[in-house]
């Protein structure tokens, strides 16, 4: 039986005898495919670990968006904050937006601390490190699914019955958001592995982004925030699928597709950077 060999050099690692184009890309993808079981196990570990020894457990995933939306409803009613007509009952609008947002924010937060939390495992065991990032991001995806089910219930309660095509497309269009989350996730994971500042910074940035992006309320088209949001990828990636679900159509096709394409490009770039950098970064964790 031939022994499969792997070669480590200053330029990176190679499988002996493997030749051709896109060697790194192929190695990255085959590593991730080979690690799917590990990704699943790591995800289960963190998911179960998080909700164990807590009374409400998984109910937290449901309670938090309600609390946020509750605050905004209260502010709206009391006149502190005036939210214009959004065409559907406000809680439905806000919850749908938050559901998409939670995928991004939960996923990115988990990614930023994924290398740090792995601790000594990183420098002692050789395993596909990208699995840590994928399993962390999966936390965001699962949170999205839990909240989506909840949001569907709320929509039904308000009697909003969107077109099934709108729903299907709206759910499908979450994929670019995942690409962006993983794309940024890889970079924050690897930088966060070295500089602990990243974890705090990510929380601050996410808090600011939630307020500035039209997720919980629409922004007047002539305001400076609206101009800024034209360059805000989250804005496009969340509002397009939300429009599809709530109204069955959206006016922002082209900006969504451009953002989606750029997100995919970002993911390929940062994933590759992660793959190339892991050995160098692990010396410095």
């Amino acid at each position: 039986m031939a022994i499969e060999k792997i070669i480590y050099t200053p330029e990176g690692q190679f499988v002996a005898g493997q030749r051709g184009y896109f060697l790194k890309l192929r190695a990255m993808v085959s590593e991730a495919i080979g690690a799917r079981e590990l990704i699943w196990r790591l995800f289960l570990r963190d998911f179960r670990g998080r909700y164990r020894q807590s009374v409400l457990g998984i109910a937290w995933a449901v309670l938090l968006p309600f609390a946020t939306v509750g605050v905004f409803v209260a502010m709206n009613r009391s006149g502190v904050l005036t939210i214009g007509d959004v065409g559907v009952p406000y809680p439905a609008y806000a919850l749908t937006g938050l559901t998409y947002w939670s995928l991004f924010s939960t996923g990115l937060t988990a990614c930023s601390s994924s290398l740090i939390n792995a601790g000594s495992m990183l420098t002692k065991i050789n395993f596909p490190k990208s699995a840590l990032v994928f399993s962390a991001g999966a936390q965001g995806i699962v949170e999205f699914l839990i909240r989506a089910a909840l949001t569907a219930g709320v929509l039904a309660w308000y009697g909003i019955a969107p077109d099934w095509r709108g729903i299907a497309l709206g759910l499908l269009c979450v994929i670019p958001l995942c690409l962006l989350m993983f794309g940024l996730g890889f970079i924050v994971a690897i930088v966060g592995g070295i500089f602990r500042d990243v974890v705090n910074a990510i929380n601050a940035v996410l808090a600011g982004l939630l307020v500035l992006t039209p997720i919980l309320y629409p922004v007047r088209p002539d305001s400076p925030v609206a101009i800024m949001n034209a360059f805000n990828p989250i804005n496009h990636l969340i509002n397009f699928p939300r429009d599809l679900i709530l109204y069955g159509a959206s006016a922002t096709h082209s900006s969504f597709w451009i953002t989606a394409f750029l997100s995919a490009l970002l993911l390929v770039t940062t994933w590759r950077l992660f793959f190339v950098a892991q050995a160098r970064v692990l010396e410095r964790v």
Partner: peptide
């Protein structure tokens, strides 16, 4: 173990480490 990369030279090893 393939955790860190050498700066010079080369290691060739079976994948099953």
């Amino acid at each position: 173990n393939g955790i860190i990369a050498p700066d010079r030279g080369r290691v060739e090893t079976s994948r099953r480490v």
